[in-house]
Measured scan of single mutants.
Amino acid sequence: AEKTGIVNVSSSLNAREGASTSSKVIGSLSGNTKVTIVGEEGAFYKIEYKGSHGYVAKEYIKDIKDE
């Protein structure tokens, strides 16, 4: 099942092309942005936001229960 997560940073969080800190940054998400978690790979979540996919470090995403 898809989960919703909240970007848990004070400034912004980089979204990357792949599940690695050396992957190209494809965008950034500001704190408290809601994202859909579609998968996980190592220390990263694969997320969907406004129709695009990217990878973000798990430690900066807070899971919330689907309402």
Rank of each mutant, 00 (worst) to 15 (best):
Y55Q: 00
D63R: 09
F44W: 14
V7P: 03
G39C: 07
T36W: 13
T33K: 04
Y49S: 00
E17S: 07
V25M: 05
S30E: 14
Y49G: 00
I26Q: 02
S20I: 04
A19S: 08
L29E: 00
K34N: 05
K62Q: 09
K34H: 08
T4L: 08
E17Q: 08
G39E: 04
G27M: 15
S12A: 09
K46T: 02
T4C: 13
N14R: 08
V35E: 01
S23G: 04
E59V: 11
T33E: 10
D66M: 13
I47H: 01
F44V: 01
S20P: 02
E41N: 06
V56D: 00
I47D: 01
V35P: 05
I47Q: 01
I26K: 03
K62L: 12
I61C: 04
E48Y: 12
D63I: 15
E41H: 07
K50T: 04
G18T: 13
L13K: 02
S23V: 03
T36S: 08
E40G: 02
I61W: 02
T21P: 13
A19L: 06
E67S: 12
G31W: 10
S23W: 03
T33P: 01
A43K: 13
S23L: 04
K62V: 14
A15D: 04
E67I: 14
S11G: 15
G51V: 02
E67F: 12
K24C: 10
L29N: 01
N14T: 12
V56E: 01
G39H: 02
V35R: 00
S11E: 12
I6C: 13
V56F: 01
S10M: 11
N32L: 08
A1N: 12
N8W: 11
E40K: 03
A43V: 08
Y49H: 03
N32F: 11
E17V: 06
S12R: 10
A15T: 10
G18V: 07
E41M: 07
S23T: 06
N14W: 14
Y49L: 08
V9G: 10
Y55G: 00
G54E: 01
I26L: 10
S28W: 09
I47V: 06
L13V: 15
I6T: 08
G5H: 03
A57E: 15
Y45E: 02
F44K: 00
S20D: 12
S22E: 13
R16N: 09
L29A: 00
E67Y: 12
I47K: 01
K58I: 05
A15L: 15
E17N: 06
E48Q: 10
N32W: 10
G51I: 01
S30Y: 10
V38N: 01
K46F: 05
E2Y: 15
K24R: 11
V38E: 03
I64H: 05
V9M: 07
Y55T: 01
L13E: 03
S20L: 06
E2W: 15
K65G: 09
K62H: 09
K46H: 05
E67N: 13
G31V: 10
G31D: 11
E48K: 14
T33C: 09
I61H: 05
F44T: 01
G42F: 02
K46E: 05
E17M: 05
I6R: 07
K46C: 09
E41A: 07
E40F: 04
E40W: 04
A1H: 13
G5T: 03
R16C: 10
G18D: 11
I6D: 02
S28G: 05
S23F: 08
A43H: 08
S28M: 11
L29H: 02
T4Q: 09
A19C: 08
V38D: 01
G54S: 06
D66C: 14
E40M: 07
E17C: 11
K50W: 07
A15G: 04
I26M: 07
S10A: 13
G54F: 08
Y55M: 00
A19R: 02
K3H: 08
G42R: 02
K24Q: 08
E67M: 13
K58H: 02
I6K: 05
T33M: 10
I61N: 00
A1I: 14
I47G: 00
Y60Q: 06
